Computed example of a mutant assay.
Amino acid sequence: MLKKYDPSNPQMVHSAVCFTDILGFSQMVLDAHQNGTGDQLLQRLHKILTEQYEDLKPEEDYMGVFKAFTDNIVIGLPIYDDGESQLGGIFLDFASFQLALTLEGFFIRGGLAVGDYYGDNEFAYGPSIIEAHYLENNQAIHPRIILSDESVQMVREHIDYYAEPSWAPQYRDLLQDNTDGKWFINYLEALMTDAHEQGNYQDVVTQLLVHKDVIEQNLTKFQGNARVYPKYEWAAQYHNYFCTHNIPQRLLQRHNNLLITQQTMGNFARII
């Protein structure tokens, strides 16, 4: 029997929980207010977040719970069977969410944890949301959604189901940052559906150029800021890694402006 969050009898359920927010959101709002563009920022945020929130909401009430307060987002999904479906759904949904916001210049950081959780329209409660928030606030650091140790262990078990690890969907959905060992959602993979199915890279290249541009804008803006600049330097290195490992060499040569110059590929790897 599928477990769910029942507001008539609130009890915690073993769940996958993701907590995210927008990097630098408070300062972004204050800066916009100061320079007289507060309403423009509000309209941009309202449009993109309203669209993306609608896509993230679970289809059935209390089978999964979505909560948002401006830039803070929580999704809880009760785990049933082995949890592969719930984790896989979060990977796919948040990859698309993170990609859409990043292309608009809003960079996302978050944490994904597995554990006891209860959520409804008013409540978000349990050790797993505390862990997810801790991961976002203390360990993610860069614009990435990282997995807890228990989440990583679950994914390792799921990958073992496949005769070849590279056949597992997680092989594309996740990457490991070798600088600290953290696994994170490979959000640029959300661009690749047509490329995988039809070999069509036209839209992929177009959106990667947008991704490059928003990163370069922040590298310029925060040059010399020792606290903020490394976050966008990480994003640049991730961008270069993804392009180098996913775009055919002939296209990289044709679009020789696709990589972010003066940045390395970063120290990333497939999770297997």
Rank of each mutant, 00 (worst) to 15 (best):
P7T: 10
L45Q: 03
Q262N: 15
L49A: 06
F242G: 06
T244I: 11
H14T: 15
D93R: 15
I215Y: 02
Q262V: 09
Q170H: 12
L42E: 02
Q249W: 05
L41C: 03
E164L: 14
Y125V: 13
I48H: 14
G181T: 10
G181I: 07
L252S: 02
G76V: 06
P248Y: 00
A68Y: 02
K231M: 11
A140V: 10
I90Q: 01
Q40M: 05
L30C: 03
L23P: 10
T193N: 15
F91Y: 12
D61W: 08
R250E: 14
L2R: 04
Y238L: 12
H46T: 07
A195L: 02
I90H: 03
Q237A: 10
I79T: 07
L56S: 04
V114E: 00
D194T: 14
I145L: 12
T206P: 15
I129R: 01
Y187R: 06
E59D: 11
D180E: 01
H142A: 02
A163E: 09
V29W: 03
V29I: 08
E59H: 07
M192I: 10
V74I: 15
L188R: 07
L174K: 01
L259K: 07
E216V: 12
L258M: 07
E51V: 13
M28A: 05
N225F: 06
N137Q: 14
P143D: 08
R172C: 09
G88S: 13
L259M: 08
